[in-house]
Structures are given as C-alpha cells and as structure tokens.
Design a protein around this nucleic acid. Sequence first.
DNA 1: ACAAAAGTGTTTACTGTACACCCATGC
DNA 2: GCATGGGTGTACAGTAAACACTTTTGT
Lengths: 224, 224
Amino acid sequence: MKKPSVKELHFAVLATDVVIFTIHEKVLKVLLINVHIPPFYKHMQGVPGGLIRPHETADASVLRHLKGKAGIVPSYIEQLYTFSSVKRDPRGRVVSVAYLVLVPPEAISKNAETGKTHWHNTRSLPKLAYDHNAIVKKGLERLEAKLGYSTIAQGFLKPEFTLGELQEVYEIVLRKKFDKRNFRKKLFALNLVRPTGGEKRGAANRPAALYKFAKRQTEFFQFL
Amino acid sequence: MKKPSVKELHFAVLATDVVIFTIHEKVLKVLLINVHIPPFYKHMQGVPGGLIRPHETADASVLRHLKGKAGIVPSYIEQLYTFSSVKRDPRGRVVSVAYLVLVPPEAISKNAETGKTHWHNTRSLPKLAYDHNAIVKKGLERLEAKLGYSTIAQGFLKPEFTLGELQEVYEIVLRKKFDKRNFRKKLFALNLVRPTGGEKRGAANRPAALYKFAKRQTEFFQFL
DNA sequence: ACAAAAGTGTTTACTGTACACCCATGC
DNA sequence: GCATGGGTGTACAGTAAACACTTTTGT
C-alpha cells in the first residue's frame, strides 16, 4: 500500500450545505435555490451552500454564506452530518459539512424572491440536485427528534410568543395534534416558559398572553 | 470580497479521528495511541485517526484504518461530528470527521499492547493531543444518550449474551444501578431480545439463559 | 351575534418504581 | 455448605391522557 504524496492529500474541496427551515402559513418549508450545471443537473433545485475558505471554520463559513446570500440571521444553527461520497458532486471531489438552520417566518419576507431562492413545502419535495434529498431528510429527522427533548422550537419563534404559536410549531413539524391543557401543563411543570406580561391582540378572539423561554439557549429535557 | 483561486480551495487535509469504546473489567475504556510531534505534543496520547484518501469516503477511511492499525472490526460505528477549527493541528489545516466505534471486549486481547496503543479508563483521561478531549467527550455524550433510545449496547456484546451482561453495560456506561426485574420487564415489553435456548455455564452460580437482539441492526425506541 | 382562539381542572388509565426471596451452580 | 449471580411477581405512586365549557375579542 503506497503512501499518498502531499499533493494527493489536498484533493478535497470543502463545502457546506445548509438546510434552512421555517414555518410559513402553517407549513414547514425549506429554502431552495436553483441549480443549473449542465449536463449533470439541469434546472434543478438544491439547498444553499458554499465553499469553506482556508482560514475559516465550517461554522463560520455557514454564517458568512447565510449573511451574504440572503441576509439570513439564523435563530438556531447546528451541525448535521458530513457527506463524503466520492461522486456526490460530478465535477470533482467535494466533501460537505451539512448544517441545520431554523429561522422565524419574519425572516422570509425580507428576502423572499431575492433572486433565485424560494421556500418549498418540505412534505412534497422534488428530486433535488446532488445528494440534497438525503441532506434535507437528515435535517428533518434531527428537527423532529430534537423537538421532543429540547427547546429547539424557539428557532421558529420570535422572542415573545403565545402558547398557541408554540404548540402550533409542534403540531406542524410532528404532524399531530396535542391537547392544549396537557401541553401547557408540561411546559409549566418543566419551567420552560415564563409570561412576559404582554399580550397579543389584533386577532378576532380573546387576547393571548405572551411568553418567552426561561433560558435563551437551547435546553434539554424530556418533553414528549 | 475576492474569489479564492482553485489552488486556495484545496487547502484542506481531510482526516478521521475515531473514539473506540469497549467495556473491560467492568470499566468503560477508550483506545488511545501515543502522539509525539515536538514541539507541539510531546509524549501525549490521542485517539487513533488517519488521513482520508482521494477516492474513499470518510466511512471507508475509518474502516481501513481500523483494520490496518489494530485489526479492529467495529461492532458498531457511526459518524460523530466534524471538527474544523483552523488551528486544531499546529502543523497545518486538518479537518477531521470524528467517529464513534464500539467493540466487544474480546476484540481487546488480540491487539492489546500491539505497539503503541492501549485502553484507558474514560473516567480519568489525561490531557490529550489536539482537540481530542473534546472528541472523546462528544463520543461519550452520544453513547450515553443513545443507550436510552436504541440497541446500541449490542456494540459491546457478543452476538449471544446474558441479560446480566446487557444490564451491566447500562450500569457501567450510565454509572447507575438498575432494578433487575424492571430492566427485564422493559426489554421484554419492547421485544428487544429473544432467548436463543442456550445457557452460559462455568461461573460459580446458576447458569444464565442466553439471549440475542431481535433485530441485528440498531433499533430506536424509548427505553429509559 | 357570531366566529375564533384563549384559558382553565378533574378523572381515569397506564406506566414506572420499589421491593425480597428461592434457585442452580462451582468450588 | 457457601458464595455468587439468575430468575421471578405484586403493590403503590406518579405521570400521561382524555375530556368540555367559559372568556374575550374583532368584525
């Protein structure tokens, strides 16, 4: 078995791919961009991504690209998985570190239709470029799992929110209904949320009390 | 913002670092090797690792190095996390995909003291080379978490095992005692194990029935 | 007045937990 | 015969789940 030369070791181009979720109009959506690199991928879509530079970490690279491409400031970010199939990019060897990012729906309007990106329903995705279907799947699995034992849901919410809005996040992502009273009972028992004193008015119904998460950072516990 | 040249994009050396756990003499141990690259790391230890080659995936690279270095055949393997700090290797930019590997204790004897490797108690680790303390910590966290909702424990066991041995895995990794009857009740309720009909004799006590996992692959559920 | 979401407790079923003794073997 | 881990059931407590009506607002 021969030892590879120094040059042969620097074969890799490093990139990131980012699965950005939001909830918009009661639908879990993922941000897609157009991909057109004939003859491999013609008029397809994929998740946004970008190359890692020699002096930045993968995390920093994701933040840089998010800021630059769409002005997105992640409300939640975490590394998902590293994809290293030899042929995942037909143009050459690209190893990609995938990330999961959550943004509140407000972040949409600002850069909706900013060029070639758009938000797509996660439940009816087309065939995506590269291995991006697998990447989105990984993101969905992680999101669904973490709802059950962390406060990751705050990635979809504004700093202050109603308990109805929080419950809706759970119902949309997990595609099941929860009992309002039991849901709140658990939230309070775990001391996850605190009332801010404010209330949300404007809808044709009784005003809802506003809450915030007790800790700003993501907490872990047994919820579901 | 200038665009990096093609050369500048191939800055990275890709590597893997592998956290290999086993249980030996009722202690959770991790495989360490000697690291000696003056003036940065003199007479230190780290987890085994190796470079990824141009035509292999990260997974394949780990399997190749495991087989070559110590003849280890992983009983369980999963990707942990990708570490990309710019200065994690003082000799140059190395991005490393870390893996978690479990092996049954039998795998130890064959390559115990095969050169420069040895098994170290995970509860009293010294300062390791590079960022390897962080890598081992990540591995421990993943292992502990997955015991609670998967059959990952079979990574530490032979294909057939006694329920006492399985319970011992949980007690050693999670550092807490379980009630024998409740532990078994849950196992059976979830249909995780099936008796093989065989029994384990030889110890100075009543023979123990042998069991195997119902599914060979790792399953997921709510156990703890 | 009506539609729409907010808010609030109790009962019941289930699941988890605590607990102790006899058994079969090797030495 | 004694030390060692194997094997087994029940009672109680705590948690999860099911369930319905009143309130407050905007239109």
